[in-house]
Design a protein around this nucleic acid. Structure first.
Length: 264
DNA sequence: ATGGTTGGTAGCCAA
Protein backbone atom coordinates (compact mmCIF):
# COMPACT_ATOMS: atom_id res chain seq x y z
CA UNK A 1 0.00 0.00 0.00
CA UNK A 2 1.63 3.21 -1.22
CA UNK A 3 0.44 6.36 0.55
CA UNK A 4 1.71 9.75 -0.61
CA UNK A 5 1.36 13.36 0.53
CA UNK A 6 1.78 16.26 -1.90
CA UNK A 7 1.15 19.98 -1.49
CA UNK A 8 0.13 20.59 -5.08
CA UNK A 9 -0.21 24.42 -4.84
CA UNK A 10 -3.38 24.76 -6.90
CA UNK A 11 -4.89 21.57 -8.34
CA UNK A 12 -6.40 23.32 -11.36
CA UNK A 13 -3.08 24.86 -12.34
CA UNK A 14 -1.41 21.50 -11.73
CA UNK A 15 -3.85 19.00 -13.27
CA UNK A 16 -1.46 18.01 -16.06
CA UNK A 17 1.34 17.34 -13.58
CA UNK A 18 -1.04 15.48 -11.26
CA UNK A 19 -2.33 13.11 -13.96
CA UNK A 20 1.16 12.45 -15.28
CA UNK A 21 2.48 11.77 -11.78
CA UNK A 22 -0.44 9.48 -10.85
CA UNK A 23 0.28 7.30 -13.86
CA UNK A 24 4.00 7.25 -13.18
CA UNK A 25 3.87 6.69 -9.39
CA UNK A 26 0.71 4.56 -9.23
CA UNK A 27 -0.06 5.40 -5.58
CA UNK A 28 -2.94 3.75 -3.70
CA UNK A 29 -3.82 6.78 -1.57
CA UNK A 30 -2.84 10.41 -2.22
CA UNK A 31 -3.18 13.25 0.28
CA UNK A 32 -3.25 16.64 -1.46
CA UNK A 33 -2.92 20.07 0.13
CA UNK A 34 -3.49 23.61 -1.14
CA UNK A 35 -5.94 22.53 -3.81
CA UNK A 36 -7.06 26.20 -3.79
CA UNK A 37 -10.55 25.51 -5.04
CA UNK A 38 -14.05 24.80 -3.79
CA UNK A 39 -15.21 21.17 -3.99
CA UNK A 40 -17.05 21.78 -7.29
CA UNK A 41 -13.88 23.15 -8.90
CA UNK A 42 -11.80 20.02 -8.32
CA UNK A 43 -10.96 18.25 -11.62
CA UNK A 44 -12.69 15.13 -10.35
CA UNK A 45 -13.57 13.43 -13.65
CA UNK A 46 -9.96 13.33 -14.89
CA UNK A 47 -8.77 11.77 -11.62
CA UNK A 48 -11.67 9.33 -11.41
CA UNK A 49 -10.85 8.21 -14.96
CA UNK A 50 -7.54 6.87 -13.59
CA UNK A 51 -9.39 4.71 -11.08
CA UNK A 52 -9.44 6.93 -8.00
CA UNK A 53 -12.19 7.83 -5.59
CA UNK A 54 -12.03 11.53 -4.71
CA UNK A 55 -13.00 13.28 -1.48
CA UNK A 56 -12.32 16.97 -0.96
CA UNK A 57 -12.51 19.66 1.69
CA UNK A 58 -12.27 22.70 -0.52
CA UNK A 59 -12.24 26.46 -0.02
CA UNK A 60 -12.35 29.42 -2.38
CA UNK A 61 -8.97 30.85 -3.34
CA UNK A 62 -6.64 29.23 -0.84
CA UNK A 63 -6.10 26.24 1.48
CA UNK A 64 -8.19 23.14 0.65
CA UNK A 65 -7.24 19.47 1.06
CA UNK A 66 -8.23 16.23 -0.65
CA UNK A 67 -7.74 12.47 -0.56
CA UNK A 68 -7.58 10.36 -3.73
CA UNK A 69 -7.84 6.60 -3.23
CA UNK A 70 -8.04 3.41 -5.23
CA UNK A 71 -9.77 1.96 -2.15
CA UNK A 72 -13.37 2.81 -1.51
CA UNK A 73 -13.94 5.26 1.38
CA UNK A 74 -15.78 3.64 4.28
CA UNK A 75 -16.02 7.01 6.05
CA UNK A 76 -14.95 10.63 5.49
CA UNK A 77 -14.57 13.38 8.11
CA UNK A 78 -13.90 17.01 7.24
CA UNK A 79 -12.40 19.68 9.49
CA UNK A 80 -10.24 19.49 12.61
CA UNK A 81 -12.40 19.52 15.76
CA UNK A 82 -11.80 21.93 18.62
CA UNK A 83 -12.74 25.36 17.23
CA UNK A 84 -16.16 25.85 15.65
CA UNK A 85 -15.13 29.36 14.49
CA UNK A 86 -12.24 28.06 12.34
CA UNK A 87 -13.39 28.15 8.71
CA UNK A 88 -10.09 27.21 7.04
CA UNK A 89 -10.27 23.96 5.03
CA UNK A 90 -7.12 22.21 6.24
CA UNK A 91 -8.11 18.72 7.36
CA UNK A 92 -9.81 15.64 5.90
CA UNK A 93 -9.81 12.07 7.22
CA UNK A 94 -10.63 8.94 5.23
CA UNK A 95 -11.21 5.44 6.61
CA UNK A 96 -10.49 2.33 4.51
CA UNK A 97 -10.73 -1.46 4.89
CA UNK A 98 -7.51 -3.47 4.73
CA UNK A 99 -6.38 -6.99 5.49
CA UNK A 100 -5.36 -5.69 8.94
CA UNK A 101 -8.67 -3.97 9.62
CA UNK A 102 -9.44 -0.25 9.43
CA UNK A 103 -6.83 2.16 8.05
CA UNK A 104 -7.22 5.87 8.79
CA UNK A 105 -5.49 8.44 6.59
CA UNK A 106 -5.50 12.21 7.17
CA UNK A 107 -4.55 14.91 4.68
CA UNK A 108 -3.64 18.02 6.67
CA UNK A 109 -2.42 21.50 5.79
CA UNK A 110 -1.01 23.02 8.94
CA UNK A 111 -1.10 26.84 9.07
CA UNK A 112 2.06 28.57 7.86
CA UNK A 113 2.01 31.10 10.71
CA UNK A 114 4.23 33.76 9.17
CA UNK A 115 5.20 36.35 10.09
CA UNK A 116 6.26 34.81 13.40
CA UNK A 117 5.50 38.05 15.28
CA UNK A 118 2.01 38.35 13.79
CA UNK A 119 -0.58 38.67 16.59
CA UNK A 120 -3.08 36.49 14.72
CA UNK A 121 -1.33 34.13 12.31
CA UNK A 122 1.31 32.63 14.57
CA UNK A 123 -1.01 32.03 17.54
CA UNK A 124 -3.48 30.43 15.09
CA UNK A 125 -0.74 28.04 13.98
CA UNK A 126 0.10 27.05 17.56
CA UNK A 127 -3.57 26.68 18.51
CA UNK A 128 -4.13 24.47 15.44
CA UNK A 129 -1.19 22.29 16.49
CA UNK A 130 -2.68 21.98 19.98
CA UNK A 131 -6.02 20.91 18.46
CA UNK A 132 -4.21 18.38 16.27
CA UNK A 133 -2.42 17.06 19.35
CA UNK A 134 -5.72 16.49 21.17
CA UNK A 135 -7.33 14.91 18.11
CA UNK A 136 -4.37 12.56 17.59
CA UNK A 137 -4.30 11.58 21.25
CA UNK A 138 -7.93 10.50 20.99
CA UNK A 139 -7.42 8.61 17.72
CA UNK A 140 -4.42 6.69 19.07
CA UNK A 141 -6.67 5.04 21.65
CA UNK A 142 -8.25 3.13 18.73
CA UNK A 143 -4.95 1.25 18.27
CA UNK A 144 -5.38 1.19 14.48
CA UNK A 145 -3.05 1.91 11.57
CA UNK A 146 -3.25 5.73 11.24
CA UNK A 147 -1.29 7.95 8.85
CA UNK A 148 -1.20 11.71 9.51
CA UNK A 149 0.13 13.05 6.22
CA UNK A 150 0.53 16.57 4.99
CA UNK A 151 2.27 19.89 4.80
CA UNK A 152 3.07 20.52 8.46
CA UNK A 153 4.86 23.82 7.79
CA UNK A 154 7.40 22.65 10.38
CA UNK A 155 11.16 22.25 9.88
CA UNK A 156 11.77 19.69 12.64
CA UNK A 157 15.55 20.03 12.99
CA UNK A 158 18.46 22.06 11.58
CA UNK A 159 19.44 19.19 9.27
CA UNK A 160 16.04 19.56 7.61
CA UNK A 161 17.11 22.86 6.02
CA UNK A 162 20.00 23.50 3.64
CA UNK A 163 20.62 26.84 5.37
CA UNK A 164 19.03 26.62 8.84
CA UNK A 165 20.38 30.06 9.74
CA UNK A 166 18.04 31.56 7.13
CA UNK A 167 14.99 30.24 9.01
CA UNK A 168 15.64 31.29 12.62
CA UNK A 169 13.07 34.10 12.41
CA UNK A 170 10.55 32.04 10.45
CA UNK A 171 7.36 30.56 11.92
CA UNK A 172 8.32 27.16 10.46
CA UNK A 173 11.47 26.94 12.60
CA UNK A 174 10.56 28.68 15.86
CA UNK A 175 11.54 26.64 18.95
CA UNK A 176 7.91 26.59 20.08
CA UNK A 177 6.82 25.31 16.65
CA UNK A 178 9.42 22.55 16.71
CA UNK A 179 8.47 21.68 20.29
CA UNK A 180 4.79 21.31 19.35
CA UNK A 181 5.75 18.97 16.50
CA UNK A 182 7.98 16.97 18.86
CA UNK A 183 5.18 16.72 21.42
CA UNK A 184 2.85 15.37 18.73
CA UNK A 185 5.43 12.81 17.64
CA UNK A 186 6.07 11.83 21.24
CA UNK A 187 2.48 10.68 21.63
CA UNK A 188 3.83 7.57 19.93
CA UNK A 189 4.09 8.41 16.23
CA UNK A 190 6.91 7.42 13.91
CA UNK A 191 7.95 10.17 11.48
CA UNK A 192 8.39 7.94 8.44
CA UNK A 193 11.12 9.71 6.45
CA UNK A 194 13.30 10.48 9.47
CA UNK A 195 12.88 6.90 10.69
CA UNK A 196 14.24 5.54 7.41
CA UNK A 197 16.80 8.27 6.57
CA UNK A 198 19.54 9.31 8.97
CA UNK A 199 21.18 11.82 6.66
CA UNK A 200 20.26 15.45 6.19
CA UNK A 201 20.03 17.12 2.80
CA UNK A 202 16.61 15.57 2.21
CA UNK A 203 14.04 18.23 1.30
CA UNK A 204 10.41 18.40 0.17
CA UNK A 205 10.05 22.12 -0.63
CA UNK A 206 12.08 24.59 -2.63
CA UNK A 207 10.83 28.18 -2.91
CA UNK A 208 10.00 29.57 -6.34
CA UNK A 209 12.06 32.64 -5.53
CA UNK A 210 15.75 33.45 -5.86
CA UNK A 211 16.65 30.21 -7.66
CA UNK A 212 16.11 28.09 -4.54
CA UNK A 213 15.65 24.88 -6.57
CA UNK A 214 18.75 25.43 -8.70
CA UNK A 215 20.79 26.05 -5.52
CA UNK A 216 19.15 23.13 -3.67
CA UNK A 217 18.08 25.65 -1.05
CA UNK A 218 15.33 23.39 0.32
CA UNK A 219 13.54 22.48 3.52
CA UNK A 220 11.77 19.34 4.72
CA UNK A 221 8.28 20.29 5.87
CA UNK A 222 5.99 17.60 4.38
CA UNK A 223 5.72 14.68 6.79
CA UNK A 224 3.92 11.39 7.41
CA UNK A 225 3.36 10.45 11.05
CA UNK A 226 2.55 6.78 11.60
CA UNK A 227 0.72 5.30 14.56
CA UNK A 228 2.48 2.26 16.12
CA UNK A 229 0.16 -0.07 14.21
CA UNK A 230 1.07 1.66 10.92
CA UNK A 231 4.79 1.88 11.79
CA UNK A 232 4.80 -1.89 12.33
CA UNK A 233 3.96 -2.23 8.63
CA UNK A 234 6.43 0.41 7.31
CA UNK A 235 8.65 -0.99 4.58
CA UNK A 236 10.09 2.08 2.79
CA UNK A 237 9.83 5.80 2.05
CA UNK A 238 10.57 7.86 -1.05
CA UNK A 239 10.62 11.49 -2.15
CA UNK A 240 9.72 12.19 -5.79
CA UNK A 241 12.25 15.00 -6.12
CA UNK A 242 12.34 14.88 -9.93
CA UNK A 243 8.80 16.30 -10.06
CA UNK A 244 10.20 19.67 -8.91
CA UNK A 245 12.06 19.97 -12.24
CA UNK A 246 8.93 19.55 -14.37
CA UNK A 247 7.29 22.42 -16.26
CA UNK A 248 5.07 24.54 -14.00
CA UNK A 249 5.92 22.55 -10.86
CA UNK A 250 4.48 22.89 -7.40
CA UNK A 251 7.03 24.23 -4.93
CA UNK A 252 6.54 20.96 -2.97
CA UNK A 253 7.20 17.37 -4.15
CA UNK A 254 5.38 14.10 -3.32
CA UNK A 255 6.54 12.20 -0.21
CA UNK A 256 5.64 8.49 -0.07
CA UNK A 257 5.46 5.61 2.38
CA UNK A 258 5.06 1.95 1.52
CA UNK A 259 3.12 -0.02 4.13
CA UNK A 260 2.72 -3.81 4.15
CA UNK A 261 -1.06 -3.61 4.00
CA UNK A 262 -3.48 -4.70 1.30
CA UNK A 263 -6.97 -3.57 0.40
CA UNK A 264 -9.68 -5.82 1.81
C1' DA B 1 18.91 44.31 4.02
C1' DT B 2 16.28 43.35 0.25
C1' DG B 3 14.14 40.98 -3.35
C1' DG B 4 13.06 37.29 -5.70
C1' DT B 5 7.99 33.84 -7.93
C1' DT B 6 3.56 31.67 -8.22
C1' DG B 7 -1.75 30.84 -7.85
C1' DG B 8 -6.19 32.67 -7.34
C1' DT B 9 -8.57 36.34 -8.22
C1' DA B 10 -9.79 40.67 -9.77
C1' DG B 11 -7.56 44.01 -4.51
C1' DC B 12 -3.65 42.37 -3.36
C1' DC B 13 -3.34 38.11 -0.13
C1' DA B 14 -0.99 33.82 1.00
C1' DA B 15 3.04 31.41 0.62
Amino acid sequence: MKIVTWNINGVRARIGNLLHWLQEANPDIVCLQEIKTVDEGFPRLEVEALGYHVETHGQKGFNGVAILSKLRFDEVNRGLPGDASDEHARFIEGVFSTDRGALRVVSLYLPNGNPADDPVKFPYKLAWMERLHRWAQERLTLEEPLVLAGDYNVIPEPLDARFPENWVNDALFQPVTRQAFRRLKNLGFTEAVRATTEAGGVYTFWDYQAGAWQKDNGIRIDHLLLSPEAADRLSSTAIDKHVRAWEKPSDHVPVAVELSLAAA
